[in-house]
Structures are given as structure tokens and as C-alpha cells.
Amino acid sequence: MEALPKQIASVADQVQEWVWDELWGRQAPTNWPVCPRHPDSHPMKATAQGAAGVWACPNDDAVINATTAAERIGLRALIVDALDGKAAAFYARHGFKPFTGKPLRLFHRL
């Protein structure tokens, strides 16, 4: 089984792919998350560093903590609020399930 930081980076990487798909479909820039040191060049990359999952600049190792919530509070699911039915369908295609009575609020168990 992968170590927790690698699992966190893997989930962040998948979320990044989903966001890129959504941005591409909206004909918006796909540079997400924006690298603070190179905002017009490339997005950050999800990676494991030490005991944390982080966003890092792929060019110079600048690091921004993405999340350590799973380690600190026992994160078990990712929850999203879709903007509309089309966005909810997008998340559903990626394994998210809607909350009962709230079709635009979806979750994905980790």
C-alpha cells in the first residue's frame, strides 16, 4: 500500500486532471493550479515530499502545501458542489455520487 503522502498526491493529481478537462471544455486556460513563481508558464505538480502531499513547481522545486488534511483529520471523501447539471454529470462520470436530495452536491470516497 502506498504511503499517505503519495496517496494524497495521487488524489490531487486526479483532481487536477478533472479540472483540466473541465477548463478545456469551457475553453478556459488549463494552467491550474497556477505556479506562483511562473504563472504564465506551467501549472504546479502534485507530489509527495516528506510526510506531506504538496503542490510543487516542476521547474525549481518551489513547494506549496496542497493538503495534509487526510493525515490530520482522517479525510475519507472529497466533496464538490457542482455549478450546474452538466458539471454534476462530469463529476458523476469520474465516480462521484450525489447526496440524497442534493443533486449538485457530490462525494467521492477516498
Results as ranks from 00 to 15, higher is better:
81 D>H: 09
74 G>W: 00
29 P>F: 08
101 G>T: 07
77 A>I: 00
77 A>T: 00
1 M>W: 02
53 G>R: 09
56 A>V: 04
66 A>R: 09
13 D>A: 15
110 L>D: 04
85 G>Q: 13
48 A>S: 08
67 T>F: 03
78 L>S: 06
104 L>I: 10
77 A>H: 05
103 P>I: 00
4 L>S: 04
65 N>Y: 10
12 A>N: 10
60 D>L: 01
3 A>P: 13
37 R>A: 08
106 L>I: 02
16 Q>V: 08
78 L>D: 00
72 R>M: 09
28 A>Y: 10
19 V>E: 04
104 L>W: 10
58 P>F: 10
91 Y>Q: 10
3 A>T: 11
8 I>M: 06
109 R>F: 08
52 A>C: 09
91 Y>P: 03
110 L>C: 11
47 T>S: 12
56 A>Y: 14
101 G>S: 05
104 L>R: 10
88 A>Q: 07
37 R>Q: 11
30 T>V: 13
86 K>F: 07
86 K>C: 00
41 S>N: 06
78 L>N: 03
25 G>N: 10
8 I>T: 14
51 A>W: 09
58 P>G: 05
16 Q>W: 07
26 R>W: 12
29 P>G: 02
50 G>F: 07
59 N>E: 13
19 V>R: 11
23 L>W: 08
83 L>A: 15
7 Q>D: 05
89 A>W: 06
100 T>E: 05
32 W>S: 01
16 Q>A: 10
4 L>R: 06
15 V>T: 07
6 K>D: 13
71 E>D: 12
92 A>C: 05
31 N>W: 04
3 A>I: 08
63 V>P: 02
61 D>T: 06
5 P>R: 00
47 T>Y: 09
69 A>Y: 10
37 R>Y: 02
57 C>E: 03
10 S>A: 13
8 I>R: 01
77 A>Q: 14
94 H>F: 06
76 R>V: 12
4 L>H: 02
57 C>S: 06
6 K>Q: 14
27 Q>S: 13
28 A>H: 09
49 Q>P: 00
35 C>A: 11
41 S>F: 11
3 A>Y: 00
102 K>C: 05
4 L>F: 01
62 A>I: 00
45 K>D: 03
77 A>S: 14
48 A>W: 12
69 A>T: 05
46 A>H: 02
84 D>P: 04
62 A>L: 09
31 N>G: 06
39 P>F: 13
62 A>T: 07
105 R>D: 06
74 G>T: 05
69 A>R: 15
41 S>T: 15
93 R>A: 15
60 D>R: 03
68 T>S: 14
70 A>Q: 08
30 T>Q: 15
22 E>S: 12
88 A>S: 12
63 V>E: 02
40 D>P: 02
10 S>V: 04
4 L>P: 11
6 K>E: 15
101 G>C: 04
97 K>T: 09
94 H>M: 01
81 D>P: 00
27 Q>E: 11
90 F>W: 08
71 E>Y: 08
15 V>K: 07
47 T>V: 14
79 I>H: 06
44 M>H: 12
39 P>S: 04
13 D>F: 01
51 A>V: 12
95 G>D: 01
90 F>S: 11
19 V>Q: 07
54 V>S: 02
60 D>E: 13
86 K>A: 10
23 L>T: 03
59 N>Y: 12
109 R>I: 11
85 G>A: 15
92 A>Y: 03
67 T>D: 04
11 V>I: 10
106 L>V: 02
99 F>S: 07
28 A>Q: 15
13 D>C: 04
70 A>I: 06
48 A>P: 05
